[in-house]
Computed example of a mutant assay.
Amino acid sequence: MKPDITNKLPEECISYILSFTSPIDVCRSKLVSPVFRSAADSDTIWGKFLPPDCYDIISNSSSSSNQLVASMSKTQLYFHLCNNPVVIDNGTMVNSFGLDKATGKKCYMLAARRLSIAWSNTPNYWRWRHLPESRFSEVAELRQVWWLDVKGTIETKILSPKTTYVAYLVYKFATPRYGFEKKPVDLHVELEQSDAGRTFRVFLDPSENIPQFSRERGDGWMEVKLGEFFNEHGDDGKAICSLREVDNYIPKKGLIVEGIDIRPKDIR
C-alpha cells in the first residue's frame, strides 16, 4: 500500500498548493481526505480567488452590507458574493455585484434605472414601481408603446479580463400583456471598438408553436440571452447590450424589466 502523503504535508502547505488551482478544483479536493477538506476552507485559498478590488467595489454598497462584509472571513465573503450579489449605488450608476462560483470572476447586473429605455420617463408609456422579488428598489413596467428600445452599457475595465461574458435581459410579464407573441424583438451585444456583433431575433412571449428562447431563473425572473463578447484586457471601452423592435406598429404592453445581467459564460 502506498503511503498517504496528505498525512505528511502540513495543512498550511496543502492550502497554499490549492490556492494555485481554481474554485471548482478546491471544492472537489474536499473529497480527497479530511485533511484536504479542512485545508480547502482556508482564507489563504479564497482570499486569492477574490478580485483585487473586491472591497473597494463593496464600499459603494449600503452601510448594512458593508457591516456584514466586515464581519466575514474571506472564505465566507467569497460564497456570500456568489449567492447574494450586493447592490452598488455610487450616485451615478445602480447595479449589483457578485462572483461566479466556479471561477471567482466578476458578475454585474445593470438595474433598469441604469438602462437607456426610450420614453421611460413618460408615464403614459412606462411606469417605475417596486417589486419585492427584485434586488433593486425599482423596475420598469411597460404600459404601452409601439416601438421598443432598451439599451445597457458597461465599461469593460470593471469586468474580469480574458473572459467571455454573456449578457441577459432579466424580465417578466405583468397582467394583462400583449404584442410580444406577435412580433420578435432584436437582441444584440457589441464591443464599442470592435465588430458589429451578432443580432438574435426571438419572441419574448412565444406561443405554443414558437420555440422558447427564454428560461426561468432561480430568483423567479425570466432571462433571455442578448449576446456575448470576449473581454481581452478590459481596455475595449464599453460593451453595449440592446433590445429593439422598431419595425412595425404593433402595440406592446406588460413587459417588466429588472435589468441586464452580465456574467461569465458557463463553459462546464
Rank of each mutant, 00 (worst) to 15 (best):
P3F: 08
T6R: 00
S15M: 09
Y16A: 15
I17L: 14
I17Q: 11
F20W: 13
F20Y: 15
V26M: 00
R28C: 09
V35G: 04
F36D: 03
R37M: 10
S38M: 08
S38K: 13
T44V: 15
W46D: 03
G47D: 02
L50C: 07
L50V: 01
P51E: 08
P51V: 08
Y55F: 15
D56Y: 05
D56E: 07
I57L: 02
I57N: 02
S59R: 13
N60H: 15
S62Y: 03
S62H: 04
S65N: 12
L68Y: 10
A70G: 08
M72R: 07
P85M: 02
P85W: 01
V86R: 00
I88L: 11
D89G: 04
G91S: 11
T92R: 11
M93G: 05
S96T: 09
G98V: 04
A102W: 10
G104C: 10
Y108T: 01
A111E: 02
R113I: 02
R114D: 13
W119D: 04
W119F: 11
S120A: 14
N124F: 10
Y125S: 14
R127A: 01
R129V: 13
S137K: 15
E138Y: 15
V139D: 05
A140N: 08
E141Q: 15
R143T: 15
W147L: 07
K151I: 11
G152P: 09
G152N: 08
I154M: 10
E155L: 13
T156D: 06
K157Y: 05
P161L: 11
Y165S: 00
Y171L: 04
T175K: 12
H188D: 03
E192P: 03
D195C: 10
A196F: 05
R201M: 12
V202M: 12
E208M: 12
E208D: 14
Q212F: 08
S214G: 08
W221S: 03
K225S: 10
R244N: 13
D247W: 04
I256P: 01
E258N: 10
I260F: 03
R263F: 01
